[in-house]
Design a protein around this nucleic acid. Structure first.
Ligand SMILES: [Mn+2]
Ligand SMILES: [Mn+2]
Ligand SMILES: [Zn+2]
Ligand SMILES: [Zn+2]
Lengths: 141, 141
DNA sequence: TGTCACATTAGATATAATCTAAAAACGTAT
DNA sequence: ATACGTTTTTAGATTATATCTAATGTGACA
């Protein structure tokens, strides 16, 4: 995704393309990890210290609301973020809290009579267990 | 679930049945909501103030580890808890953050070649959108 | 009864996220 | 270019959530 495409995706969602906002989403787009807000703040500012902590949080909130970024809450740890690219599911490690992408596949919808008046926007599948780093440690130690 | 059954389920998992621990899980078992740790602390102590905040958190941690209680992380809000009864999925409201139970149904497992060395313990389905309280407000206001 | 691992406690501390109020940057009309 | 209203950014304070510490209590059992 080049600079023009990023700018257009922001403006298409009614968000100004400010240097700070651009830096946040551009950073997320080139990650395959799922950084925390603190990690994003630090990384963005290492190169060019123009994005305060409050702005990092503000922009993450705006980007999530606009549907350009996804927030993943992890029990007892800071939330993690990824730029919504190809659809995928998530795997969260019980031990280290890392979030990993899992290949996407269709999930059957709930019976419509179990929905009541609720309006479903999305449905996400989360796998839990031990990641490939932690699984060996578990077996041996 | 009567007192004896609760006691046995604790001891069966290697947890002593202390008054505080018992109070936490007994409270959760009679809830159909998903209270936060703070709410559990307050409710348990309203009747009999014998369970400190640290103990509430300690016991919730132990109960989750023992698989008797489930923790649900909600973006930007306090974690919520429920006593693992019948299997079910969850619905989380975008607007008010409330967590509601959804009828259980089987979810297809991921292709085993996409798992790598990961060990999957469980797989949960989370629906997001507007709950039955918030959906009307959305339509009108 | 003595012992020891487990459990609880109050309060301090750590971590994560949001709020505040003032300044800056921007878009647009003149 | 200038003025004006709106959006955005900022540093630092503040809040919310959760964990840690070190002292004390409790109960199983030898
Ligand atoms: Mn992802
Ligand atoms: Mn539930
Ligand atoms: Zn791991
Ligand atoms: Zn709601």
């Amino acid at each position: 995704m080049d600079a023009g495409a990023i700018r257009r995706s922001l403006e298409g969602r009614g968000l100004r393309c400010t240097p700070q906002r651009y830096a946040v989403i551009a950073f997320l787009l080139k990650q395959n990890k799922h950084p925390t807000a603190a990690e994003i703040f630090e990384a963005v500012n290492r190169v060019d210290p123009r994005c305060s902590r409050a702005t990092t949080y503000n922009n993450l909130r705006d980007l999530v609301q606009a549907g350009l970024v996804r927030e993943v809450a992890v029990e007892g740890r800071a939330a993690r973020f990824d730029a919504t690219g190809m659809r995928h599911h998530h795997f969260i490690c019980d031990r280290c809290g890392n979030v990993e992408d899992m290949e996407w596949y269709e999930v059957p919808q709930p019976a419509s009579n179990s929905l009541g008046k609720r309006i479903v926007r999305e449905c996400e599948l989360i796998f839990r267990g031990l990641c490939s780093k932690c699984a060996p440690r578990h077996a041996s130690g």
